[in-house]
Computed example of a mutant assay.
Amino acid sequence: MKRGTFQLMKSVNKSIILNKIRTGEPISRAQIAKETKLTPPTVSSIVKELIDEGIVMESELGESKGGRKPTMLLLNHNGFYVIGVDAGPSSVVCILADLSGKIYERVSSPLQEITRNEEFLKVLTMSVRSILKSVDDKSNVLGIGVAMHGVVDIETGTSVIAPNLKLQNIPIKETLEKEFQMVVKVENDARAMALGESWFGDHGLLESMLAINLGSGVGAGVVIEGKLYHGAQDIAGEIGHMTIDMNGEVCACGNRGCLQTFATGSAIAKLAKLDSGEEVFQLANEGKEKYAQVLREVGTVIGIGLTNLIHIINPQIIVLGGGVSKAEKFILPSIKETIEKRGLTDEAKRTRIVVTKLSDDATLLGAVALLLVELFE
């Protein structure tokens, strides 16, 4: 969808009505007017526009409350699509998803021997172009959401620092908008994961959520009332650099004892004196107690970090994702036990800690949600 068309679809009242339909479907025009305080003529006029645009559709009649049965409204979930991109340290993964998060196409492109911004952008552009080949009507694509590791300037859509690629100042938004003439949103990958959990993780209506990505690095996203919180200097969620042991190992950031020196795959491998975190998990699964104990100890350290975050942010739920979270049967009991011991209040001790049901797609669906937030809210 062209950038101008996207803006035409988006207005304050349209967004209010769209979000009401999204969260309440099936829903009648009268109910929308009642709950939004918009006048019935305004609701009817905007709903007509949304139906004409193909983003909303009418369903069978609802129950009568004395008069004629109302016509119910639903989102036309597969009428529009979004391209979601997870630009990780080793590959670029692109998906084509509809408004409900259903994935129709997927393309993965390796990032090998990337040394310049232009090389990265070439892989990114080729991946998006490959996904677009599967779409008959490009005007039905709302835009492109990109989840990028490292520090991201969300206003300009620039990857300021991509540490795992050793690249800086990559103009992702500028390049993709110029190439495809679509709306492009770029966000840090851990924050995107949090948004994906908020929209598609089946956690119910929440006022606050913390989602943590435990993988090659440790990052988090804070979602408050459906919106990502970025902080004053745009570094909210950099929990991997929370100090756990001031005399600990030197972190990549230069400080000692960061959570990241304990809770990543490579850190776990180092603790176990093996080549990879996957190998530690495999041996633990095979009943090797020595390696199961390593994972339990890592869970304790993560639990200390999460207790700190519970005391600061006090989220309703903490969702764990990333490769390390797949060792949940070893780390999750230790995490919960640690929070139970260290939580300040009974309520804090009972904070819900879960592992994502979206698996590796949480970040990709978060990239999709970057566009949906713009449209619906």
Rank of each mutant, 00 (worst) to 15 (best):
R3W: 07
Q7V: 11
Q7L: 15
K10V: 15
K10P: 04
K20I: 10
I21G: 04
I21R: 04
I21E: 03
R22A: 09
I27R: 03
S28F: 11
Q31P: 01
E35Q: 10
T42L: 14
V43W: 03
V43A: 03
I46S: 02
I46V: 12
V47T: 05
L50D: 00
D52F: 12
D52Y: 10
G54P: 13
M57S: 06
E60V: 14
L61K: 11
G62T: 14
E63F: 12
K65L: 14
T71C: 06
T71M: 14
L75M: 15
I83W: 01
P89D: 13
L96A: 03
Y104H: 09
R106I: 11
S109I: 13
E113P: 01
E113I: 07
R116W: 09
R116V: 15
L121C: 06
K122L: 15
V123Y: 04
K133G: 03
V135K: 01
S139G: 05
N140K: 15
A147Q: 08
M148V: 13
D153K: 13
E155K: 15
V160T: 13
N164C: 08
L165G: 02
L165T: 05
K166C: 07
L167R: 04
N169D: 14
P171M: 14
T175A: 04
L176Y: 05
E177C: 08
E179C: 08
V186A: 05
R191K: 15
A194D: 07
G201N: 06
H203T: 10
H203E: 08
S208W: 07
L210D: 04
I212G: 00
N213W: 06
G215D: 00
A220N: 05
G221M: 14
V222F: 13
V223Q: 03
K227D: 14
Y229H: 12
H230W: 08
G231W: 12
I235S: 03
G237R: 02
T243L: 11
D245H: 07
V250E: 11
C253F: 12
R256D: 04
G257K: 08
A269D: 01
A269N: 04
E279W: 06
K288V: 15
K288D: 11
V298E: 02
V301D: 00
G303Q: 09
T307F: 02
H311W: 09
I312F: 12
I312K: 06
V319R: 02
G321E: 07
S325W: 02
F330D: 01
L332E: 04
P333Q: 08
E340K: 14
T345P: 05
E347N: 07
A348K: 06
R350C: 07
T351F: 11
V354L: 13
V355R: 03
L358E: 08
L358I: 09
S359G: 07
D361K: 09
L364W: 03
V368W: 01
V368C: 06
L371F: 05
L372W: 04
L375C: 03
E377W: 11
E377R: 11
